[in-house]
Each structure stands twice: as C-alpha cells, then as structure tokens.
C-alpha cells in the first residue's frame, strides 16, 4: 500500500481534472491495481469537516505514514506573510504544507502553480504566490532550496498548465512499483524522462520549421506552416513531451494550430502578458525572432534560416493538413 495525500492551494483544479482523464492507468486503476491509497483529495475524498482534519493532523504528526504528498496550486503567503488569502481546514494552507511536506517520503508539485507560481504569480503577484521549491526560475520557494523529503529527495516538479495525466500517473506507478530510483531529475527538478525533449519533438509542423515556412493566419491558415515565426510558438524553446505523449490521447496544441505558450517552463506566462505579446512572435528589428531555439545564437540562426528558405521544396509552401 502506498499512501497519498493530495491538497490544493491557490489552484484551479485543472491538474486534478487532467489527472481524471488518465487511462492505463486510470485514477481508479491506481487505487485498485497499483495499491495507491488516497487518504484524501479535495475532489475525491469522502470525509469532510472535522473528519478530514483528523486525517491531515495524523499525517502532520507522523501518526499516519505518508508516502506521497501531492500539492496542486501555489502556496499563498499574503497578505503580509499571514497566508490568510488561502485558509484551509481552519488555518492558512501554508501552515499545513509546512507540516505535511517533511513527513512525506516523496513530495510532488503538480502543475506550474505548485512548481513555480504559475499564473497567480504573474505580475503584480497579488496574493504573494510561490511554488513549493521555486518562485519562477529562482530556487527556494516556500520550502527552501535545502528541503528534502524523507527519502532525501527535493520536490519532484511536474509542471505544465495543466500537467498531462501521464506525467503524473507514470511517476506514481514508478513509485508504487519500486522504480523511484529510476526517476532522474533535471536542474529544475523535472523528471528527465519527460522533460529532456522539446515540445517541438514530434510536432507535425517540424518540417515547416526545418524549411522556415511560416503559418500566416489562424484557422484555415494552420493547414500549413510553423507557428514559431508569427504566432509566438515556444515549441523549440520549451521542454515537454506534448508531441510524444499526446493530449487526451488525440492531439496537442501545436498540432491543432495553437502556438505553444511554454507552460512547462518557469517563466510562463511569458513577458507577463504585456500588451503586444500574446500569440505574437517578439522580434528584433521587426524581422529576427527574439527568442530562438535553445542552444543557438542569432547570427547562426539567421544564416541557417536563409539557407533553409532557399532549400525549401515546393511542397513545403503548400497546404499539408488538408480535408
């Protein structure tokens, strides 16, 4: 039996909803086939009021062994460090988190908010939201950079707005089947197996990127081209498996014609949604993309782009995703 407690701070429940879309294993399979015992979850828990509080207190005191503590949403510190913008079960949620996290064998931050603050931490960060171990790219967060769970692990960050259900369920199965030691983390504490690749890895538009062919318009315009050049797609700069492990088993934003917003990276939403930045590629001198693929520089990028445009075959300028 692996015990799991899941709480939500400054959250929208999107990660929970995403989690409930899971198959192989479904949320039910995790319980019935993989021995995950859900002690309490805000959407799935049977208990309420005092009975729910008894569970939290037992976990916090160590009386109830807690294997996995999943936190969704930001830790809200305001106003003035009191945490009173987010009360839960009789006290500021931040106080529960401070007591529960050290008692868990593994602490999992699910979704951007819990990882690094996400949308609620967008300027002016009205309620002083932080992630469990980061605020945006800065280490520390609520628990501090030195925090380690009982198994000696830092917080496992599963970012995304929301996180894909498989990114969660497969990690839970890994823990439940004794493969916790196989979970390698990157420098942002994300499981490498999911977050080494780019969102662009597996994107159906990658051939258009190769030949620098731009999508010129949304809707019917997305039957061809790459969304990087005009619509601010962050696929080449974002680490996620969105085009390897499809969403809802069907598609991905970039496949469907929506630019990647970079939601697995700590800076999301990029440029703090300043006027002129939403669904528009930021450019230098009106031509050169300001953000370019990871690991390259503007001069190399432009030389490569010029050659690629010359090399572009005719089909790369035609509609590809046709009726």
């Amino acid at each position: 039996m692996t015990t799991l407690l899941w709480l939500q701070g400054g959250a929208c429940s999107g990660n929970t909803m995403s989690f409930l879309n899971a198959e192989q294993p479904s949320a039910c399979d995790l319980v019935t086939d993989f021995g995950i015992e859900v002690l309490w979850h805000p959407s799935l828990g049977m208990e309420m009021g005092d009975h729910a509080q008894e569970i939290f207190r037992a976990c916090a005191s160590g009386e109830q062994p807690l294997d996995i503590f999943v936190f969704e949403g930001t830790v809200i510190l305001g106003p003035n460090g009191t945490g009173r913008f987010n009360m839960f079960a009789d006290r500021p949620m931040k106080d529960w988190v401070a007591e529960l996290a050290p008692q868990a064998n593994v602490v999992v931050a699910i979704g951007d908010c819990a990882c690094w603050g996400g949308i609620p931490a967008t300027a002016p960060n009205p309620v002083d939201s932080v992630g469990l171990q980061y605020l945006k790219r800065q280490r520390g967060g609520f628990l501090g950079s030195e925090f380690r769970s009982k198994w000696g692990l830092p917080v496992i960050n599963i970012p995304g707005c929301p996180a894909h259900p498989d990114w969660v369920t497969q990690i839970l199965v890994a823990i439940a089947t004794g493969r916790a030691k196989d979970i390698a983390l990157d420098e942002l504490q994300r499981p490498l197996t999911f977050f080494k690749t780019f969102t662009q890895t597996g994107c159906t538009r990658v051939q258009f990127f190769e030949y620098k062919q731009a999508t010129k318009e949304f809707g019917q315009g997305t039957r061809t081209g790459c969304l990087f050049y005009e619509f601010g797609c962050r696929g080449p700069m974002t680490h996620s498996p969105c085009n390897r492990i499809l969403w809802n088993r069907q598609s991905s934003k970039t496949r469907a014609g929506m630019p990647c917003t970079g939601c697995t990276e700590p800076e999301f939403p990029f440029y703090d949604l300043a006027p002129g930045t939403v669904f528009k590629t930021q450019k230098i001198s009106g031509v050169i993309p300001k953000d370019i693929p990871e690991g390259t520089d503007h001069v190399t990028y432009m030389a490569h782009a010029a050659a690629a445009r010359v090399a572009a075959p005719e089909w790369a300028k035609e509609d590809m995703f046709v009726v």
């Binding site: 999107g14 909803m17 598609s251 991905s252 970039t254 929506m258």
Partner: peptide, 12 residues
Amino acid sequence: AIFGGQWPHSSF
C-alpha cells in the same frame, strides 16, 4: 482536444 489541442486549458 481534436479541435483545441488539449483539455483542460487550451486557448484556441
């Protein structure tokens, strides 16, 4: 997801 790329949280 077929139309919007994903659910939840598309902005399509």
